[in-house]
């Protein structure tokens, strides 16, 4: 044949060219942020601060791993913050009540954990079921459940605060404050969830199906993918991640109130988007999500350590970073880079 210039499918060009800002961007930004933090206050890189920072990013990080699945498959879950609050509340109620019949001990905490996971899975399934079988937009469904969960926790706490019995707190405390080999347990949990999430998204058919559905649901359906099941499962995964985050969060304060987990959904979504996952679905990156979650916490941490910008402006700085991150991902920087690739006709 006379077709010139292309013969068959050649392997992708040199790897470093395709791994441009799109992939490494979030990591580079985080490193820049850390250098900036160090220059402003050398205490930033102290072991205590780094540990503290990673521990704090674990909640949002774990939730954001779940959100990566939901968003990759073309959905959104706005209910995670409220869900965390209501799960915290129910956990505390369950544990406090169990003491009466079973006495204090590790088993109380385990009962709390089981309750948390069961609730997380159920709440996630509910979101997924209503979006897929009910054919209601995920935004609407989860906006609804967000309100429901938030008001439920307020109702359970009777407008005040639900407190965990003090003797259980002592047993439960290490889950947040403890460490294994010097690594705080929340950080370990975050790492495990992230690794499992990465494997699931990148090395299993399920992850591929999530991307396919987010990319084009009809193509997925025509390709023998059980779209409803895969999509519902993303919400179940999200619910599971919320329950894990909650299990780690409860011993931190030992209480839950209507203000627990406020705006976590936005932080989780922000972490996912900063990390390079596409909001409209079809492409997800767990590694990016992890970096995004750490970055959000780092911003607050740096503001705490310095006096340049008021700590009250934390949200504003985060907002600027989110917009800037997405602006860069949209190729606004790559068009300036020598690696740019134009589309062929």
């Amino acid at each position: 044949m006379t077709v010139q210039a292309h013969e068959g499918v050649k392997p992708a060009r040199k790897k470093f060219m395709t791994l441009d800002f799109h992939t490494l961007g979030p990591l580079l930004a985080l490193i820049a942020l850390c250098i900036f933090g160090f220059l402003l206050n050398p205490a930033f890189v102290s072991e205590g601060n780094i540990t503290n920072l990673l521990t704090r990013s674990a909640f949002i990080g774990i939730i954001a791993v779940g959100a990566t699945f939901v968003i990759t498959a073309g959905g959104i879950d706005l209910s995670v913050g409220s869900m965390a609050a209501v799960i915290s509340g129910v956990m505390i109620i369950v544990m406090n009540n169990a003491i009466g019949t079973m006495g204090v001990g590790v088993h109380i905490v385990l009962i709390g954990c089981v309750a948390s996971i069961a609730l997380g899975l159920a709440a996630g399934f509910l979101n997924g079921f209503m979006t897929t079988k009910g054919k209601i937009e995920a935004f609407i469904v989860t906006l609804g459940t967000m309100g429901i969960y938030r008001s439920l926790v307020t109702y359970f706490a009777d407008g005040g605060t639900l407190s965990l019995a003090f003797d259980v707190r002592d047993v439960y405390r290490p889950v947040y404050y403890g460490n294994i080999l010097g690594i705080p347990i929340p950080v370990l949990a975050f790492a495990v969830v992230a690794i499992l999430g990465w494997v699931l998204l990148n090395r299993t058919a399920y992850g591929r199906y999530c991307m396919a559905i987010g990319s084009n649901e009809t193509v997925a359906r025509y390709s023998a993918i059980k779209v409803d099941r895969v999509r519902t499962l993303t919400y179940v995964i999200q619910g599971f991640c919320v329950s894990i985050a909650t299990i780690i969060y409860v011993p931190r304060l030992g209480s839950a109130s209507s203000s627990t987990g406020v705006l976590w959904e936005l932080e989780a979504i922000a972490a996912v988007i900063i990390g390079g996952t596409m909001l409209k679905g079809g492409y997800g990156r767990i590694g990016g999500t992890v970096v995004g979650a750490i970055m959000l916490t780092t911003i607050g941490n740096i503001l705490n350590l310095t006096d340049i910008i008021s700590n009250y402006l934390n949200g504003a700085v985060q907002g600027v970073i989110i917009i800037a991150a997405v602006w860069l991902q949209r190729g606004n920087l790559t068009t300036l880079s020598p690696f740019r690739r134009k589309r062929a006709s």
């Binding site: 090395r203 591929r208 396919a212 084009n216 193509v219 025509y222 390709s223 023998a224 492409y283």
Partner: peptide
């Protein structure tokens, strides 16, 4: 609209229908 995922590469499109053929112990 229904046949191919336009925004990804050739290989994942090719195997989308038959991913089960490319798995070992649950992993791709």
């Amino acid at each position: 609209g229904k046949g191919l995922l336009l925004n990804i590469g050739l290989q994942p499109n090719l195997t989308l229908l038959t991913l089960f053929r490319h798995m070992r112990a649950g992993f791709l």
